[in-house]
Computed example of a mutant assay.
Amino acid sequence: MRTADMTSDMRTNMRSLTNSLSPSITNMIRMDHTSVLATFHQYEISSSPRTKKALVDTACMALEIHAQLEEEIFYPAMRAADTDGTVMEKSVPEHNEMRRLITKLRGMEPTDAEYDQTFMELMRDVLHHVADEETTLLPDAERLLKDRLGELGMEMTKRRMQIAAPRAGEFASNTLRGLPTSTMLMAAGAVLAGTYLFRRSNSTHH
């Protein structure tokens, strides 16, 4: 067998191994959606200001990290795969609108008259964005990027840890300010699972 053929086979085998060990990027995006929506559903108008702020801050931080990961890793991969771009055209503007509402919320207090309304507006935008991605973009990705889903998932896991690490104190502060136990355990479990899978993949590759 020629050296070039052996190298090609090794790359194919490595990619297959990565895909089998790493959560796919599309499943990671779905998990992010589920986690944020679970936080949304914990929010009640009658909750204490402390709990409201903890939930809003947690949701906003998760959305910021999620949007950055999609824009750095997922969207470029999709553009390179030559999709028609219909959903992609809306995705970044929708992220920017979410960021606008997040900035507005961070300049308010939970006792402000428009606080609940602003968070509900953010929730509606996120639900619309999630519906677009889960009905169109993610199925397209699983068709067009089927040989790269695990590789991209590992890349997203690694980048998520880099982005989230400086904000660990912010997450801890949110939990202490009244984050419900179920949400705290869900978020902590997601972080631990991501860390385990990333380390497992790295140790296997070495």
Rank of each mutant, 00 (worst) to 15 (best):
K52N: 03
H33F: 12
T51E: 08
D32A: 14
R50W: 01
K52S: 01
E64D: 09
S47D: 14
L37N: 10
M31A: 14
L63R: 06
F40E: 03
A59G: 06
A59T: 02
I45A: 13
D32E: 14
F40N: 05
A38H: 10
L37T: 14
A59F: 03
S48H: 04
M31V: 13
Y43E: 01
A62M: 11
R50Y: 01
H41D: 15
C60G: 05
S47I: 01
R30C: 09
P49G: 04
C60H: 03
E64A: 11
S48N: 03
L37A: 13
A62G: 03
P49D: 04
S24T: 15
D57Y: 03
Y43C: 04
R50I: 00
T39V: 15
T26R: 06
S24N: 09
D57V: 00
N27V: 11
R30H: 09
A54Q: 02
R50K: 07
T51Q: 10
K52V: 01
S24D: 11
K52C: 00
T34M: 11
T34I: 08
C60P: 01
Q42L: 07
E64S: 13
R50N: 08
S46P: 02
S47P: 01
C60M: 06
I45Y: 08
L63I: 14
T58D: 05
K52I: 00
A54K: 00
E64I: 05
S46V: 06
T39I: 15
K53H: 01
A38C: 04
E64G: 13
R50P: 00
F40Y: 13
H33D: 11
M31S: 12
V56Q: 01
N27M: 10
A62K: 12
T26I: 06
A62N: 07
E64Y: 03
T51A: 04
S47W: 01
L37S: 15
A54W: 00
D57N: 14
H41F: 09
N27F: 07
I45L: 08
I25G: 10
T34H: 11
P49E: 02
A38D: 15
T26Q: 10
A38P: 04
T58R: 08
R30F: 03
S48M: 03
K52P: 00
F40A: 07
L63M: 15
D57H: 07
V36W: 06
V36M: 12
L55C: 02
T39A: 15
T34R: 13
D32G: 14
K52H: 04
S35F: 04
Y43K: 00
H33V: 11
A38F: 08
D32L: 09
A62T: 06
M28A: 14
P49C: 06
S35C: 12
E64P: 00
L37K: 13
S35M: 15
A54F: 01
I25D: 11
E44V: 05
I29W: 05
D32H: 14
S48I: 02
I45S: 11
I29F: 07
I25H: 09
R50A: 09
F40M: 14
L55P: 00
P49F: 04
M31K: 10
F40I: 10
N27Y: 08
D57K: 09
C60E: 02
A54N: 02
L37R: 13
M61D: 07
T58M: 12
S24Q: 14
S35K: 14
A38V: 05
V56M: 06
P49N: 01
K53E: 05
R30I: 15
